[in-house]
Simulated scan of single mutants.
Amino acid sequence: MGEPMTAQTPIRVLAVDTATSAVVTGVVELNADGGVTTLAERVVTDQRRHAEVLTSLMRDVLAEAGIAGADLDAVVVGCGPGPFTGLRVGMATGAAYADALGVPAYGVCTLDAIDGTVPAPDTGARLVLTDARRREVYWAIYDAGVRVSGPGVDAPDSLVAQVADRGLSDVLGESRFTERFGFAGADLVTPTAASLTAVAAADVLAKAPAEPLAPLYLRRPDAVELKDQKRKSLLPAATDD
């Protein structure tokens, strides 16, 4: 582990997340006390063009921040949970960019970063939800900013029953999901460049060795499932003994 950063040397971080329906990227400065200042940020909703949109946004935020890629000290990447295709775009791009620059890439849970976008409730727990498609949601529960349950993936109605006794004070997510729990929501819920960086701040400041990015899929990708289904269809039909 390297020497911690000093107060005189804020470090510059590129943050990337493609685990939700939006592509989020930004450049931030991280101070020795953990304070985060956003220099530039872009959030674009385009599920079908994650790869194309992300690389363009990375160029945009670097240009707006007035720095070159070589000026970056670290890359922070949201590792989900999220749908397979979109999630791997952000992780592969972030990891490759960090490798090309010779800087560490730190992975964080996207739900942790979303929780960090809103101050924690004074009392009680918060449920954070994102769209998992297939009529399901990714979820995690937080108490005072600390994840105490999850991440998981479930049908919303099943999750309502599971958390009925958790004494939730807040539910953070899209309205179509939060309303089932009796809470107001928003049209779009994403992490921010600042909240992604804040989750990784301790490791970034300490220059901790970066581990390989590990995606939080929480379920098998569709391509694998379809391949398995095709393989099973070629097997002889089972017979009763």
Results as ranks from 00 to 15, higher is better:
162 Q>N: 11
167 G>E: 07
198 A>Y: 01
196 L>F: 08
168 L>A: 06
174 E>D: 09
224 V>K: 01
180 R>S: 11
225 E>G: 08
187 D>N: 11
186 A>C: 09
177 F>S: 00
171 V>M: 12
229 Q>C: 04
198 A>W: 01
182 G>V: 06
198 A>F: 02
170 D>A: 15
162 Q>A: 15
189 V>Q: 05
182 G>Q: 08
207 K>A: 10
189 V>W: 08
176 R>I: 14
201 A>N: 05
187 D>W: 00
203 D>Q: 14
194 A>C: 10
209 P>W: 08
164 A>S: 15
213 L>Q: 04
208 A>C: 08
221 P>Q: 06
211 E>V: 02
171 V>A: 12
220 R>V: 11
190 T>L: 04
222 D>F: 07
165 D>R: 13
227 K>G: 14
195 S>K: 06
203 D>K: 13
224 V>G: 02
204 V>A: 10
204 V>W: 09
186 A>F: 15
188 L>E: 15
177 F>A: 00
203 D>M: 04
188 L>A: 11
186 A>G: 09
186 A>K: 12
222 D>M: 11
169 S>M: 00
192 T>N: 05
215 P>D: 04
161 A>R: 14
220 R>N: 06
215 P>G: 07
207 K>G: 15
168 L>N: 05
205 L>W: 10
225 E>L: 15
226 L>W: 13
197 T>I: 03
162 Q>H: 14
175 S>N: 09
182 G>K: 07
213 L>S: 03
218 L>H: 00
221 P>Y: 01
199 V>R: 06
226 L>A: 11
186 A>P: 08
219 R>H: 11
187 D>A: 14
201 A>T: 10
172 L>T: 06
208 A>S: 14
204 V>H: 04
185 G>T: 06
172 L>N: 01
189 V>Y: 07
194 A>D: 10
191 P>N: 04
223 A>Y: 13
187 D>P: 02
208 A>V: 10
217 Y>S: 07
193 A>Y: 09
217 Y>W: 05
204 V>M: 09
169 S>T: 08
219 R>M: 00
175 S>T: 15
219 R>T: 04
189 V>M: 07
162 Q>R: 15
222 D>C: 03
